[in-house]
Design a protein around this nucleic acid. Structure first.
Length: 300
DNA sequence: AACTTTGTCAACCGCAGGCAG
DNA sequence: CCTGCCTGCGGTTGACAAAGT
């Protein structure tokens, strides 16, 4: 793979930087200092020329990455709070792997950090709670889920997710009809806006009403085996439902219901069997009333 | 104590999109 | 329009640490 990449470079693609004489690997404190000092005085300007001006033997990309992911003064370091975790899970449910978009909603966190956290903590945690309603639904469409048996916030999340899937199916249909690739972006932008709306707000607030944790018999039953990092088993169990209700889908499972419009619509159909209540009714309504040629209304 | 496996995360890579000329 | 450059993004890697045997 790497070999192929390098071959590609050789075959004509310009390298991002001159590899000769360019330092790679971990940054030393001295390099950090040089970079911070330079940016404080001059701003980053052109990343490509920055290393030269700052006296660094690094490529611009490397400098940019170091600054954005580590040296920026507004970076919040340390462990993710439960609220942040919830936000990541919810936003990931809406946006998928758009880490930059997710990061923009979490003050002080970088896309890289969120991506790493998702891949190392949350994803595993989600995979551990195999009994999530959503997964059960996906694996056995014939069996409707009694959403009412879940806690309010779990229900709410399922409803939110169902609205998302429904909209996704709809948008997918539209994109097919319009043969337009821009729809996907609009889709995500739309969710971001929805997230910022009172609907999203009410959705976020439900955490407060529910103590920030969703509990269900299912999650309580979930395996106490090593699902997450050491020392957080309680959190793991508590969070399982939140996570699973929302995005407990392996990439394979995700693929299995995303690509085909038929499948999507089928999925969407089965979702209507959900007991949609509370404010998600409004969200669903909003999503279903998504205007066909009216994307401009949602663009910055 | 030595070795192996697993987990974490900073850093790298190539690609895509925006933009200026 | 076309082309080339630059930036930002998401996927992946690899070094290091911790846990397990």
């Amino acid at each position: 793979m790497k070999v192929a990449g390098r071959t590609l470079v050789k075959m004509g693609r310009a390298p991002c930087c001159d590899k000769d004489g360019v330092k790679r690997g971990p940054w030393s404190p001295e390099e950090d200092q040089l970079l911070v000092q330079y940016i404080k005085q001059h701003g980053h300007g052109s990343w490509r020329t920055l290393p030269k001006h700052a006296g660094l033997l690094r490529c611009g990309k490397s400098c940019r990455l170091r600054w954005i992911n580590y040296l920026r003064p507004d970076i919040k370091r340390g462990p993710f709070s439960p609220e942040e975790e919830d936000s990541i899970i919810q936003l990931h449910g809406m946006l998928g792997n758009r880490w930059a978009a997710i990061a923009s909603k979490l003050q002080g966190r970088t896309d890289n950090e969120i991506k790493n956290y998702w891949n190392t903590h949350l994803k595993k945690r989600l995979l551990c709670s195999v009994h999530s309603p959503l997964v059960l639904k996906l694996s056995s469409k014939a069996e409707p889920i009694n959403v009412k048996s879940e806690s309010p916030s779990t229900r709410h999340m399922i409803q939110w997710e169902s609205a998302r899937v429904e909209a996704e199916a709809r948008l997918s249909m539209e994109s097919l009809l319009l043969n337009s690739s821009s729809i996907r972006k609009t889709d995500c932008d739309y969710f971001l806006r929805l997230w910022n709306s009172e609907i999203g707000e009410s959705f976020q607030n439900i955490k407060g009403e529910d103590g920030g944790v969703c509990q269900s018999p299912v999650s309580q039953k979930s395996s106490p085996t090593k699902c997450g990092s050491a020392g957080s088993d309680i959190t793991v169990q508590a969070k399982n439902t939140t996570a699973s209700a929302f995005a407990n889908i392996t990439p394979q499972q995700e693929d299995s219901y995303r690509p085909s419009v038929d499948e999507m619509m089928a999925s969407s159909d089965s979702l209507t069997s959900y007991d949609l209540i509370d404010s998600s009714d409004a969200a669903l309504e909003l999503l279903l009333d998504f205007p066909d040629g009216d994307d401009e209304a949602f663009q910055g």
